[in-house]
Design a protein around this nucleic acid. Structure first.
Lengths: 364, 364
DNA sequence: CGCCCGCCTCAAACCGATTCGAACACAACC
DNA sequence: GGTTGTGTTCGAATCGGTTTGAGGCGGGCG
């Protein structure tokens, strides 16, 4: 009793015809007598037959396609990256298929293997950080000469890469706060599975170490990557904190966290930016539609997707192997209304001028 | 001069070994002498050889997977549906792959064909409305006995379906406005490629025809599905409109449009809900994080995704064919702060009591 | 009546890999 | 020198379809 799915051979046997005839019925080609067609269709029905599309002409290239493995399908950041990649893919006649790992290492691993085995022509991915740091599936890709481009750096994988210098961008965001006269900041950090979380935190650390700011481990608050995370973390962190214990500014992993935080602050009766300044990251469209438009770092998301797809397609279509390329795109600080000089900035006389000054380009 | 990609046979010939040996090198299995491995790897390099994964063991089922074709990858509505579907898929050991049509008919068609040919086990889709109404690719799915579930009804395709009664939900939203005493409303309509656009508009029409409201074709404003669309349409519609010509309430295709509209109104100096009431649709998380939380219709997005995946998996795993099932889920009106009685509601004496009343259940 | 031709159907080759038992070379052992 | 063993390579079968040229069958025509 075979438990496997029915094949064309089974159908042929059932209907008392040859595989060729079944194939003809299946594809509506050639001439098949009506009565024969009936018999075949009936057999297919009875066996619940479902053809394995890629069986015949094994080597025939199916529709051209690229795959992208993102981390959160409900994050506008990844959505826009995917949109950019899709646009370029489409231009070149490729269809983009998206799989989300939702930050789960196993899911990412499966996704990479699946897309590869489903025979997409190339792959864009952003590795999920794992405690075991097992990136064998990416090495496997290299070993099999499979074209792929990363959207997040990962140690030791010599692959093509498109990214932004997150450390530097994050540092510049903090320097903006320092320029405004802030003296005590906190960082709402992103999910542990993302390299960007580490890089952005690192940027904060570096900016602080070059200033009079003291930034310790207590000043890192895990907040995830979403509205709710920022909201909850904000509520928890600020609810019972004495004014003297409060930072005057918060930098966030991304805009969603920043927006969630803003709402929490609002509910707690704290005003942004009068009481607390808030900085986001990514510059998603939403930042301009919330009560207080968010100061943030503009990451060229769409362009990153485009570029990744371009590089990937070049790899895919090249007859010879191409050495990995790396592209770092520029990120730009966008000052909106969620940042301002802290309320106490006027007190220390020597900083008066600086505190009143509008955000200005760093003079370094 | 063959222009096709190199196959294992080519590599074997180049290296002067058999296909079996090349395969062994490829999979790091068996014992291969170092010198032979070298020769083979070199040949692979020279030919830029890339194995076709699904060639060997043609019939071997690859990783189990489901496909979903959505319409806008940057729309939180679809994101959450996909998230629900992914959750259930994962539970059953399937990986979910997403393709977005971005509302383009051709892209959707290609996506359906691609996923099918890439050998996913089943498909969730929401048909793009096309002027030619050519749904042959869905009939093709049926013909090939390929399991799929729709998330938007489409005439004449007898397939399994999961949806919400959009007409009714939209009607209830308008009735809420009528209850509040509104007398002149406008509908910011969605994209033409979506059946939901028509259904939600239809709901508005029906609610109005049962009331004293007059709702004509001029009262339908195309606004797309995104923040920017609602914002621009809002600006264009309200900018030079005399107060007497203004509706007292606007129902929107979805929450994003509603949020965009709110921002436009704010910029024009119109207050929500004091001057204009705004109703959204979908109840995305965002509705609570904007300046004026949006009154909306809660669509069980996640649950819809879950249910669609469940139904699909049942189809996929069933040994026999299952007749199509249809499930309509409940949608619920969520009253937040963007709707209130219109400013002039107090004027007509006979409506005074009603205008002051809080939103209450319809008495019909 | 015999021949030709069109309509159907089929057997066999094929696609690009994997898999496995057989075969070969060479060394060690009795 | 023959046997056994080990390390390496190969030939052939296989997966589930598609494709194609060959051939059986029956009817119309000369």
């Amino acid at each position: 009793m075979k438990t496997d799915r029915a094949t064309i051979t089974d159908v042929a046997r059932q209907a008392g015809v040859s595989k060729a005839t079944v194939s003809a019925v299946l594809n509506d080609t050639d001439a098949v007598k009506a009565s024969t067609r009936e018999r075949v269709l009936e057999a297919m029905q009875r066996l619940n037959y479902r053809p394995t599309r890629l069986a015949g002409r094994v080597g025939a290239r199916a529709t051209k396609s690229l795959g992208i493995v993102i981390k959160e399908i409900d994050n506008p950041y990844y959505a826009e990256v995917a949109l950019g990649a899709r646009a370029r893919a489409q231009d070149h006649g490729y269809t983009l298929v998206v799989v989300s790992s939702e930050g789960e290492y196993d899911a990412e691993r499966r996704a990479v293997e699946l897309l590869q085995s489903k025979d997409v022509d190339g792959l864009i991915a952003m590795p999920v950080l794992d405690e075991h740091a097992d990136l064998s599936h990416f090495f496997e890709l290299k070993r099999r000469n499979f074209p792929f481009v990363l959207l997040e750096a990962v140690r030791g994988v010599p692959a093509s890469l498109v990214d932004v210098d997150n450390v530097d961008a994050s540092r510049r965001a903090v320097e903006h706060l320092i320029d405004l006269g802030h003296t005590r900041i906190v960082h709402f950090a992103g999910p542990g599975y993302s390299m960007h979380t580490l890089e952005r935190l690192d940027g904060v650390r570096r900016a602080c170490s070059g200033s009079r700011l003291i930034f310790g481990d207590d000043d890192v608050v895990p907040a995830g990557a979403h509205l709710e995370g920022g909201y909850r973390a904000g509520l928890a962190y600020f609810r019972d904190r004495a004014p003297a214990d409060r930072p005057t500014a918060v930098t966030c992993y991304n805009d969603l966290v920043a927006i969630g935080l803003c709402r929490a602050l609002n509910e707690l009766g704290l005003r942004v930016p009068d009481d607390i300044s808030v900085v986001g990251f990514d510059d998603i469209a939403l930042t301009e539609f919330v009560p207080v438009p968010i100061t943030t770092v503009r990451v060229p998301k769409f362009r990153m997707g485009e570029l990744a797809a371009e590089m990937l397609i070049r790899h895919v279509e090249s007859r010879a192997a191409i050495p990995p390329q790396r592209a770092y795109l520029d990120a730009q600080l966008i000052v909106r209304r969620s940042t301002a000089a802290p309320a106490d900035a006027l007190a220390p006389p020597e900083r008066m001028g600086q505190a009143l000054a509008a955000p200005r380009p760093r003079s370094r």
